[in-house]
Amino acid sequence: MTEYKLVVVGAGGVGKSALTIQLIQNHFVDEYDPTIEDSYRKQVVIDGETCLLDILDTAGQEEYSAMRDQYMRTGEGFLCVFAINNTKSFEDIHHYREQIKRVKDSEDVPMVLVGNKCDLPSRTVDTKQAQDLARSYGIPFIETSAKTRQGVDDAFYTLVREIRKHKEKMSKDGKKKKKKSKTKCVIM
């Protein structure tokens, strides 16, 4: 069974824990209790493949930012979460993405942009803004509501699919490099 290491990042209060708990335990946590770091595991079937999701729910508070490099190193894919009623959390996505790329030393890291709290009427981040940002990053965008469960499975499952595509691409690139290195030079 394939294991996928997913990391949920975003500013404090955007609903990272609520999304994760909704996926794992099928219930909505409405009281806000700032996370330092929590880890969850769940076995699911995605596109006919049974897999184990190892999900790291991270601290959004700035005082825990020193811990970010460590979990970013171990993560295979990242859910970059903002709240649709919090423009600052949307603007912060850029910083999370840049930090992930720096730590992973790669421009090509599996990510999904997630606009959470889409059940709320007080939207300050337009869907088109988020779609445009995701398009500019070359990553999928999904709106979710941890409260109603809308888009929750889709967000995590899409990230797994992005990781699969990335692994497939990397193995193809690896095979191309191996083929090239088999060419021999004969000096007579």
Results as ranks from 00 to 15, higher is better:
V9I: 10
G10F: 00
A11W: 03
G12F: 04
G15A: 00
G15Q: 00
K16R: 11
S17C: 03
A18S: 08
L19R: 00
L23C: 11
Q25T: 04
N26I: 05
F28L: 12
F28G: 12
F28N: 06
F28Q: 07
E31V: 08
Y32D: 14
I36L: 09
I36M: 11
E37Q: 11
D38F: 06
S39F: 04
S39V: 08
S39P: 08
Y40L: 11
Q43M: 03
Q43N: 09
V44A: 10
V45W: 05
I46L: 06
G48T: 05
T50A: 07
C51F: 12
L53Y: 03
D54V: 03
I55T: 10
I55A: 08
L56C: 14
T58C: 12
T58I: 10
A59K: 08
G60Y: 04
G60P: 14
Q61I: 07
Q61L: 10
E62C: 09
Y64I: 11
S65V: 08
M67Q: 12
R68E: 15
R68F: 04
Q70S: 07
R73H: 05
R73T: 10
G77W: 00
F78R: 01
F78T: 01
F82A: 12
F82E: 00
I84E: 15
S89L: 06
I93P: 03
I93V: 10
H94E: 14
R97E: 08
E98F: 00
E98K: 10
Q99W: 15
I100P: 00
K101S: 05
S106E: 10
S106Q: 07
S106N: 12
V109C: 05
P110D: 01
G115S: 06
G115P: 03
G115C: 09
C118N: 06
D119I: 00
D119C: 04
V125T: 11
D126V: 08
K128Y: 11
Q129M: 12
D132T: 08
L133S: 06
A134S: 04
R135K: 07
Y137H: 08
I139D: 05
S145K: 13
T148G: 09
T148M: 14
Q150D: 14
G151A: 13
A155Q: 01
F156H: 01
Y157P: 04
T158G: 05
L159G: 01
L159F: 02
V160Q: 02
R161G: 10
E162H: 03
K165I: 03
H166K: 07
H166A: 05
H166D: 04
K167A: 07
K169C: 11
S171F: 14
K172N: 14
D173R: 02
D173C: 03
K176E: 13
K176I: 04
K177Q: 07
S181V: 03
K182N: 15
K182H: 14
T183L: 02
K184L: 01
C185M: 02
V186W: 04
V186Y: 02
